[in-house]
């Protein structure tokens, strides 16, 4: 009978385990996530240098997303594609689980929505770091912080962070009405320690939306495959659509 009692003890132990699992308060995540950052007086200059180091980039690949959290939901748009400077881009986008494509070669610009290519307004500047340089010159942040070094994917990076509002850059920005007020945003910049070039940019901000409360915005973009060989001919289905409408 000894083995039976052993089994029963096991069963009782298991059921005790199943009911006795409470969640204690554990602030470790809060402190872990709290950024340990130090003001860096030369930080702005270092970011600027990293931007200038991008000048010899002729092609790159981009992985990015824009997230908006409002109410109970976080909604994401994902981007993945290649750019050949100054004006060729082929980009895959996922909006709400549906797939979209953008192809631009100079002033020839098309977007694919629900399986059909349609012309679109060409994108004027395909080097995102120009906009960052602009921001640092026209709206320089008061303080630039240095964060602990991080490894992004497999690249060892120096990390800088600053907060500013893009006042003058707003005018003429896409999707902006004339009266729009600039939004303060937190910019985090990852500089590749090896090449001294930009690796990743993250922009975080919030906006108060009437009836919806706060919408928090997070846009992250990662550059890789710099100066790699790309074949940027127009996608075959776009060509087919144009040739045989």
């Amino acid at each position: 009978m000894k083995r039976h009692s052993l089994i029963w003890t096991g069963v009782v132990l298991c059921s005790a385990l199943l009911t006795g699992c409470n969640l204690p308060s554990d602030p470790s995540l809060l402190t872990q996530l709290a950024v340990q950052r130090q003001p860096d007086p030369t930080g702005a200059q270092k970011v600027m240098t990293a931007i200038q180091n991008m000048n010899d980039v002729s092609t790159y690949q981009l992985k990015a997303n824009i997230q908006v959290a409002s109410g109970r939901f976080v909604r994401t748009v994902d981007f993945y594609g290649s750019v050949q400077l100054p004006n060729i881009v082929y980009m895959d986008e996922t909006i709400g689980g549906a797939n979209y494509l953008v192809y631009q070669n100079g002033s020839f610009a098309y977007q694919n929505t629900s399986g059909k290519w349609r012309p679109m307004q060409p994108i004027t500047d395909l080097a995102p770091w120009h906009s960052m340089a602009n921001l640092l010159v026209t709206d320089p942040p008061k303080v630039v912080y240095k964060l602990p070094d991080q490894t992004v994917v497999s690249w060892y990076c120096k990390v800088y962070q600053f907060q500013t509002a893009a006042t003058s850059a707003v005018i003429g920005a896409p999707g902006t009405p004339a009266h729009s007020t600039p939004h303060q945003a937190l910019y985090t910049v990852w500089v590749d320690a090896h090449s001294g070039k930009l690796r990743q940019i993250e922009v975080q901000s919030t906006v108060g939306v009437p009836g919806l409360g706060t919408a928090s915005i997070d846009a992250t973009q990662l550059y890789f495959g710099r100066n790699g060989k790309l074949n940027m001919v127009a996608p075959s289905d776009l060509v087919t659509q144009i040739e045989r409408p």
Binding site: F79, I123, L126, M132, A166, A173, H183
Partner: peptide
């Protein structure tokens, strides 16, 4: 906003926060 104009917003990280904020306000 179409895929092209979303990409255009993304390609201008200096103003992306403002563009998305405005997109939210317009949509609402």
């Amino acid at each position: 906003a179409g895929p092209g104009s979303l990409l255009s917003m993304l390609m201008s990280p200096g103003t992306v926060a403002t563009s998305i904020a405005n997109l939210s306000l317009q949509t609402v």
